[in-house]
Amino acid sequence: MSPRPAQSNTSDPEVSRPSHAAVPQGSKGKRMRRRDLVGYFYIAPAFLVVGVFFICPLGLLIWMAFNNWPLLGSPHFQGVTNFISLFQDTTFWDSFWFTTKYALVVTPAIFIPAYGLALLVNSRARGTGIFRTIYFLPVVIGLGTASLLWVWLLNDQVGILHQVLVRWGLLHEPALANANTAFVAVIVMVVWKTVGFTMVLLLVGMQAIPDHLYEAARIDGASWFNQQLRITLPLLRTTFALALIMSMVGSFLAFDQFYIMTGGGPHNSTITVVYWIYRASFTYFKLGYGAAMSLVLMTALTLLSACQLLVLRQRTD
């Protein structure tokens, strides 16, 4: 008995499909409405959480920026006062330029070795997978933990890296005590921790390039360098653009590495925007002022993300 309807279903798909599609037509209004409610039921829990912990704070942020908002006690409205003091706050703009400088330096510092590593491990040779895994391993370590690890490596008493660098004559004082060497130290740590991530992104892009393009180039006598220049780089253009923007946005939000490795020092020379927001809000308890700074940061990041959307649209066209 039971196989029969199944059989008629499979042998006669053209008949069964129209009749299936006709079902909602029979009682169109009611069925549609019930399906509607069911859809909302499934997405409602996610939107409840996002609403409470994202939309509410986002709305509150805008309101806070126009208030004098202490941690304790009641806030009061003060118009654009926060923004006026923000534009006069040299510490904020110093941190803004420092963050920009950091993002502009760290992005190529990650990209160039990532490209080299991707070329190295883009091979079907045995054992390459192990190297890929090893280069990627630091990515899954937390940025905070990695920072703590490198503070120890660079410690002038017990740090092995400090010893090696001093012996080679590359370092004369504790690396994190000098603004320039501290900046370099943070960048080296971040490259170690994140280069594997960019490597995998580039690798995926490289593997999507069809082999026959390289074969044709080889037959035409193109050198390895020319193949990179004329085939790989142009075809990786969108991968590059996306990874670059991700790296820029990520670098603009830098906090952990500077908070842990340099503490913003020496002489407040390594304070990032998020660090300064953190200090204003949770050390000086000027929450309204912190909110105004957050709005400026958000605007900068939205501009970067808009670039990302532009790149994506270009690719789908």
Partner: peptide, 24 residues
């Protein structure tokens, strides 16, 4: 619209709404 709204969340990092999130 709702799906797009959810994706926009991706563009606003939580670092930028720290202070109000603390109050919530």
């Amino acid at each position: 619209v709702l799906f797009l709204a959810l994706l926009v969340t991706l563009m606003v990092p939580f670092q930028s709404i720290l202070t109000p999130l603390f109050l919530v």
